[in-house]
Amino acid sequence: MRDAPGPGPDYDGPTYYDRPSLKPAPFNTTVVGGYIFLAGLAGTAQMLAALAHRARPRGFRRVARTGHALSLLAPTLGASLLIYDLHTPQRFANMLRIFRRTSPMSIGTWVLMAFSGSSIATVAGDWLGRVPGLRWLRPVGRAAELPAAVSGAALGTYTAALLSATSTPLWAAAPRALAVRFGASSVASACAALSLAERQADNHRTARDLDTIALAALGVELAASLACRRRWRALGLHAAEDTPAGAVLMHGGADLVGTAVPMTLHAAALAAPPAASRRGSALGSLAILAGSLCLRIGVLETGDATALRPRESLGFAQPKNLPRR
């Protein structure tokens, strides 16, 4: 069960019969990875909706409405996935007994609550605000836009802090880089979803704007991905490279499909005339969405692998790796 030595100063001290020194998170990686992806998409879609609305209230009306609609993914499918992953799901409401600031899971629960409430209000304003007798929903929806955007920004990135605030080596090793990576991936995924919707409506100019934002986000994501990888290697955490799931999800999925391919496609599409760029942009957007999901599942999978490998967990928990104070 010993791992092939990788680059970097790897741990070669004793272990207890090579048995794990940590327990991996008992999360279903597909379910929780799916939630992290949806929360990121929904949260940042709401943030982008508010920004678009602010930039040009009339011209970007449809983007804003689509963003509001996408935000519903969090309170519906996203929350269902979270509850499904509990091992005693009928006690879901116990999450609302307390607020604990040392627990990103607790913080995230309340962020999701705030986001869900305000997002439902923005959608209600859009969909029912013209119905006679329900016109009061329009100002309510508009007032909900700011809280929805702010909680959405938090929803798009708190999941990285949730993973970092554990003892799982891969997650704990690079809290900042992981948060940047998750945040940027969330922004890219929301841009991709909104861009697809705009292309569907033949609104290529807005789609190009969204693709440009996605390109910027992908650049940030790529940089953070390199920072993560550097840190993991330096700490002797190789699960992201030498487990089959890790290699496929993190390299093939997150880095290649999720950033390199769409960056190329989007850049090419932006260089071409608006209508001609349609297919490349749509393909790029789909790649972003797939890559964003792969990133989350990949980080969960490979994190669990580092928890199960005593050489990686004991090598990580060495005095030389303690945070300097």
Partner: peptide, 14 residues
């Protein structure tokens, strides 16, 4: 101890 760094870096990115 990693909650604040993670949350702040994420929010700064956003």
């Amino acid at each position: 101890n990693r909650v604040a760094p993670g949350l702040l870096a994420g929010l700064a990115t956003m």
